[in-house]
Design a protein around this nucleic acid. Structure first.
Lengths: 146, 146
DNA sequence: AGATCAAAGGACATTGTTGTCTTTTATGGG
DNA sequence: CCCATAAAAGACAACAATGTCCTTTGATCT
């Protein structure tokens, strides 16, 4: 129930671009990294992945930078988790028992499945716009550092 | 909601010792590692930690090996998680927002806290004896490999 | 066209987890 | 007392996640 740093950088980076969309359409990596106090080049890789997956737009050169698109605000947390966590948190048994599944469940299988479903459901139904506050400066403060 | 390999090795190693207690009191590392198909020396470190924390007993030399004690079967999953996961999965915000807490909650704070509590409660109230089956061979098969 | 800007991409360092091997220490048996 | 045995302990290798730096690519502006 703890996600990678990559996930945190991705989420907060995209949210930063999204919340500033009213003010300026294009945001540069340097600004994001500084505002969020996040390692610049590592954030670059993460944002690149977000752009490649169509969650944000990115443009090179003069007046380049990251900007939101039609998909951005409707992107679910589950999408970002999936992209940044790889296949790590798959459906393997939490207790790391052998061949634990519906037909051959470990002793906690049902309880764990129930929690896992609630958890996945929360991530799947929460989209980025659900997380944003109207008050941009206040919101930025809330995502500024870990 | 996925634990480290160390956790899995610790849990399954201790369970193996516990379920064989009827047959023989002392179990050697070699046997555990082979039965569970687990890296021997790494398991050694993990079992050493379990012994140091009093979750199992260990004795050197002739007729040495690991054995259970009064605490073993009453050890909770939360205890083993805490020992093997360090302080990683602490109470920091799952969304990795800044200073997220009761007074300054992130947008998902309450939902996440609720799930986190259910999860912690499950781990805290489940002890090793809850996981074990009467049928030792069958149980060993169920924990034999990941 | 040339200069400049900003993301893309690749090389490499650091750190933490996992895995392997060797030596040391403690215990019981002959 | 000496030897065999088994865990303890420490050194080191492999691997993945994270973090840093440098070069390349593509776009815009003059």
């Amino acid at each position: 129930m703890v996600f990678s740093k990559s996930f945190g950088y991705a989420l907060r980076g995209v949210l930063y671009v999204a919340v500033l969309n009213e003010e300026k359409k294009k945001i540069q990596l340097d600004e994001i990294a500084e505002a969020l106090t996040v390692p610049r080049y590592f954030l670059g890789k993460v944002m690149r992945l977000m752009a490649k997956e169509g969650i944000v737009n990115s443009e090179k050169g003069h007046n380049g930078g990251f900007s939101i698109n039609e998909a951005t605000l409707q992107t679910s947390l589950l999408t970002i988790v999936s992209l940044t966590e790889g296949i790590k948190r798959s459906d393997s048994c939490v207790l790391r028992f052998r061949k634990c599944n519906t037909y051959n469940p470990c002793p906690l299988h049902n309880e764990i499945e129930s929690l896992r479903k609630q958890w996945t459901n929360l991530l799947a139904t929460t989209v980025l716009s659900d997380l944003m506050k109207k008050d941009a400066p206040d919101f930025i403060r809330s995502i500024a550092t870990v």
